[in-house]
């Protein structure tokens, strides 16, 4: 007859053995954004490597869609840089412009693209890729993904330690992509914000309004960040000295 503490130890030991066999609950680490203001608010301290993350544009507009694309490209570039693998980017209708993605850090030799005929084929393909285990990150652009599909992806990602980013595109009906429930670890909504004002006429570094809509074990949150640099890193905008100065740059150009 075992004592209670010994029983607990034995149980914990068995649990870890079962985890090792089933490849679940293995901690694959996280990818931090490198910005304290963001990382502190994330429960895991960054994006979990063994997890599925969802990103959507803030509105139906193409500009928000492109902002979400670049946000994903930057995250993917940092996942690629942190491992030896490559990125797989699966779409159903290919309209990505690779030179633009390269400027977010995703070099053309590091991305393998796939063009599928529909969402179901795409979800099956990215699950295959995750189960294979060799990509550094798998990105899928879908309009519709059921709870079952996202759960499968989340489990596969947790088992193999391959991060999955699901880009939820807006449907034609104009229905919010995050209305559907999902098993994702984090859900992000990215939209455009007025760019960093410059002292001269011109368009400054792009800024995005990033909302963390949902995360496991944490609170929702939102930030204004500066867009990706050439290695895919975001930045926190420096505070303007006072609001009138920030406005002046805009009106100055309009008058020019």
């Amino acid at each position: 007859m075992l004592t209670v503490p010994a029983q607990a130890d034995r149980l914990a030991e068995l649990r870890s053995k079962v985890d090792a066999v089933t490849e679940r609950n293995v901690d694959h680490g996280v990818l931090a954004f490198g910005i304290d203001a963001v990382d502190d608010r994330l429960a895991a301290g960054g994006l979990a490597v063994g997890g599925m993350h969802e990103v959507a544009g803030a509105s139906t507009s193409l500009a928000d869609d492109a902002a979400a694309t670049l946000f994903i490209a930057g995250v993917a570039a940092r996942f690629v840089a942190a491992s030896t693998g490559q990125a797989l980017w699966a779409t159903t209708r290919f309209d990505l412009y690779a030179p633009g993605l390269e400027q977010a850090g995703l070099r053309p030799a590091d991305v393998l693209y796939a063009e599928l005929r529909d969402d179901n084929a795409l979800l099956a393909l990215i699950e295959d890729a995750v189960r294979d285990g060799s990509p550094a990150v798998v990105i899928g652009e879908v309009r519709r993904a059921s709870m079952v599909a996202t759960r499968r992806l989340q489990l596969a990602a947790a088992a193999r330690g391959v991060p999955v980013i699901l880009f939820r595109r807006w449907r034609k009906l104009g229905r919010e992509p995050f209305e559907e429930p999902s098993a994702a670890s984090t859900r992000w909504r990215v939209g455009c914000a007025p760019s960093t004002p410059l002292r001269v006429a011109g368009v400054g570094r792009s800024r995005w309004a990033v909302d963390l809509v949902r995360q496991r074990g944490g609170e929702a949150c939102s930030w204004i960040v500066e867009g990706c640099d050439a290695t895919g890193r975001l930045a926190v905008p420096a505070p303007a000295r006072h609001r009138a100065a920030a406005q002046a740059g805009t009106s100055q150009h309009l008058a020019a």
């Binding site: 490559q86 797989l88 393998l112 693209y113 796939a114 084929a121 890729a129 294979d132």
Partner: peptide, 20 residues
Amino acid sequence: VPKLVDTLAGRAGRDALFRI
């Protein structure tokens, strides 16, 4: 990578995979 390409091409077809 070739192994991954084979696996994915087996499901989606050889033309579905490409680089830019």
